[in-house]
Amino acid sequence: MILRGAMAVLGKDARCELRSKQAISAVLLFAVTSTIAVSFTLGSIGSERAIASVLLWVVLYFSAMAGLGRSFAHEEETYTAGLLRLTVPAEGVYVGKLAFNFLTLVAVEVVTVPLFVLLTDLRIGRVGVFVAVLLLGSLALSAGATTAAAMVSRAASKGALFAGVSFPLLAPALGIAIAGTSAALGPPPHASAGTDVRLLAYYCGVVITASLLLFRYIWEE
């Protein structure tokens, strides 16, 4: 039941988004311009692993902050949240919204990561690990951001509060993702990158499980 509800929410959000293009256009614009700004000011930093991974994740993190904060606020403002509460179990709402936010972030990455690699002449040592850290890091950001968005959905100034509330939840994942990306950019073997992938997986597990258990309390009237 939860899964069916989640898929219904995902389908509904996808269809609405494809028509209004509200979230994706804002995020994409921000992500692309930030990527270009970062690459422009630094030039070719392909060999500077630490700087490159920090900058990449800073762009992705702020893109998430720009685009994922409104997932629930819009529902409350247009009074469609009641319909959601009546038809989908709370956990299904969380999973559906999480899936949508994750796919949005991945869509942004499909455009910006190649752009970043191109503009900074980035050399990736272990592509598989690089992609794994990217995907798991994005899942981690989406998981925390989705829960935070639900928490601030009724607040007045949602943007600033959302970013502030998200930061403590996402900071560890951000740190691990940056470290993992930095390790993945280097030549093999790099033992620490595997650890980072595992850590991100655990982090996602903890945050998603805790959010599923707590979501009922956050979402109900």
Partner: peptide
Amino acid sequence: ILACLVMPFFVFV
């Protein structure tokens, strides 16, 4: 509760 659960991960960062 969520913030508390996420804290241990700082140990690795």
